[in-house]
Each structure stands twice: as structure tokens, then as C-alpha cells.
Design a protein around this nucleic acid. Sequence first.
DNA 1: GTCTATAATGTGATAGAC
DNA 2: GTCTATCACATTATAGAC
Lengths: 213, 213
Amino acid sequence: MRQAGAGLAAASTPARGRGDGGQASGSTREKILDVALDLFTDQGFDGTSMREIAGRLGITKPSIYYHFASKEDILLALHTRTHELSKAALSRLASQPLTLHTWGSALDELLDPMAAHRKLFLMHDRNQAAVEKLHRKDHEDEHDDFQQRLQQALADPSLSLRDRVRMACSLGAVFGCLFTAGDAFGDVPGAELGSLVRDAVRDLMTGRSAAQA
Amino acid sequence: MRQAGAGLAAASTPARGRGDGGQASGSTREKILDVALDLFTDQGFDGTSMREIAGRLGITKPSIYYHFASKEDILLALHTRTHELSKAALSRLASQPLTLHTWGSALDELLDPMAAHRKLFLMHDRNQAAVEKLHRKDHEDEHDDFQQRLQQALADPSLSLRDRVRMACSLGAVFGCLFTAGDAFGDVPGAELGSLVRDAVRDLMTGRSAAQA
DNA sequence: GTCTATAATGTGATAGAC
DNA sequence: GTCTATCACATTATAGAC
């Protein structure tokens, strides 16, 4: 019910400065983000027009450009949010040597923010193409993207194919249960769902056909 | 190497009749499907223009309209292919009472065509929004879509939440290993990858924290 | 902070020659 | 079966009034 409807808080890039420190900014900006999150998820980033976002809010197109410099800027704001939510887990993953165990720990840490902000991560997942396009533009230097960092770990040549498959499957299990399932678990609290997924992933990582070290 | 580059064979909707039974049609049509598969996967359906597809083939936009009635028709042709590849497994799933065991069997059957045609299913997965839009138009009656049938099973109220989570995780594990991993397993033969995933899913479904019946 | 225009561009799709 | 030329339309984005 209070899943992620109005819980985007402050995080993103103002089209104009606001004077104050940039606390909880105008509520219109957050309404835009909330509506965009819904529409980008259901229809895709490219399949959603500014006019449609504005229409849902009862305002007009140019009003949005007062709060965001461009359509991509809206996506960037949402992407930044997922980035910050996954930052901690990804940093820990990068600070340790990559093993089946450290991967499991990082995934475990990642599970909480993902379960708590399913909608946000689902949008991110369903719009990989658009997000990647963003990254190519903004900073072609080091873009420590969510998906990219994980995929990089999965391709680590120092691990056996068997282990890498386990890692990919565990990641997929988390994603799949939280996202692919669609609205199948829409009314299940994030904490409960997270707990059940945690058990499943543990079996996956410690099963009798699993790793040895 | 010979993953799914030119292996789309015959399956879809000709813009014009061809006279003969509709065997292996002109090779241009299949080249279009191959290029579209790549571009739709990388840039998304909406992010890919007809001009771009034509450009890669060294032809022009209108030439494509000789082979396909519309851009959506290209997507439909690709979608139909995935539908046929998953038809058998989904039918078996629907013909049996839904349990953890029958789910596992169906998933096991589904794993083979998915591993053998990763690119095709990846495209389908990355363009859910566009595919769903197709379904709303073409036949608003009974659209037995791939994703939809699976999600429907995951929402079955006769099963416990615990079991449903297991099912979603196992499905996600398959998807995740085959798709989310990106190119991490790009050079691994489908059969080998499928075998490893099979083992992982088995652990997931029979783990000590798993079901009871 | 929101509005009414309107510019500038790219897109899907068609007509008709060859 | 492929081309050149073009239409009709939607989109992002901006200018400027209030």
C-alpha cells in the first residue's frame, strides 16, 4: 500500500537552483518522479511522452521543463536513486576478493533495499537500454552502474563457470522473485518477501550440487 | 558462434502473399529479422528506427515495407517465434495441476529452447512493454503470452506464498543466468549452460529450506 | 510555477518510378 | 524487390506572457 508510491524523497538534479540547501524540494517535482516511475515501468521510457506524464498530474508539458531540464533528466533522477540504494552493497562487493561467499554476502545486503523499493528497481531493469544510453552521454569515464558492476563480476575469469552460473542464478532468483513475478507478490510486504527469497538463495548457494570451497 | 545469428528460419506474417506454400521465403526477410533482433535487444523496440534497420542491411526504409507491413509486424514475427518455442512447455504446465513438482518439470522443459535461443528470449524479455502493447491490439481475446502464463501460475492462490516464491526464484534463476548475465556467458554453448542451470534450479527446488510435499 | 503558442526534428508509412 | 520523394504526425524542447 505504501510501497513506493510517494517514497522517492529528495534525490536528483534540479533544473534550476532553489536557493536553500536543496532539502525536500517542491512536491510537484516528486509527483513528476512518481508518475514517471509508474509510466516508465509500464510503457517503457521511450514509450512514455512528456505530455502523458503532465496529463496525469493535471498540468501541461512545459511545466515539467521547469522542474527537469529534459526527459532524460527525469530518468537520471530515478537512476541516481537506485544507484544510491545499491551503493553500499556494490562497494562491499568490490572491496573483497570475489568468491562464492562474498558474492552471497553482497547479494544478501542488496536484497533489502531492492525488496523495499521494488518498483524503482523494476523500472531500472525494464529500461536497461535507455539507462545505458544515459551513461554513454553523461560520463563516459567511469560509470559504476548497477547492472554493469554485477555483470562484470559474473564474467570474472578467475572463477569457474560452475560458480559463475551459481552466482548468476542467485542474482536472477532475487531479480526474478522481485520483478519478473510482476504483481504476483504486489501485496506482500517487502520484508516478508525478502526473507523468503533469502532462504531460497541460501539453498541455491549451498545446495549439494553447489560449490566446494 | 552459430548461436542464433541466422537461425530464425521461417515463422511470421508476410506482408504480401508469395504464391507457393510459404516455405523458406526470401533471405532478405530473414536478414531483417536478424538485424531487428540485435537492435531491439540493444536499443529497445522504440529506440530502434526502421531507417537504422535498413541501414545495417545496405537497403532503404521502404524496402522493409515490402517484407513487413509495419514495424510492429517485425516484432510480432519475432514474438511468434518465442511463442512457438515455449508452446510445448507451457501447454504441459497448463494441462497438469500446479504444484512445485509440475512447475519444476515445465521449467525444465522450458530451459532447453531458452538456452538454445537466448538472444530471442532476451529480446522478448527486454521489450515487455512493446510486446504487451502488441497483444492489446492484435487479439484482445485470449492471448496466451509467454510471460503472462508464467506470472499467472505464480499468482495461483491455491499455493502457499513460500512455494510461489520458490517458483519465482527458480524461474528467475533461469532467466537471470541466461539473460541478466548479459554477455558473461556469451561464448558458452547453450547445452552446457543449460545443464549447469538445471543443477542450480534443482538445488533451489529441493533445498532443505524448500517445500514439504 | 504554470500557461499558450511554436519551433525543430525524427518517425512510421505510402506513392509511384524502375 | 529496391529505389526517390514525400506525407502526416508525434515528439522533445523553447520563447515568452501571466
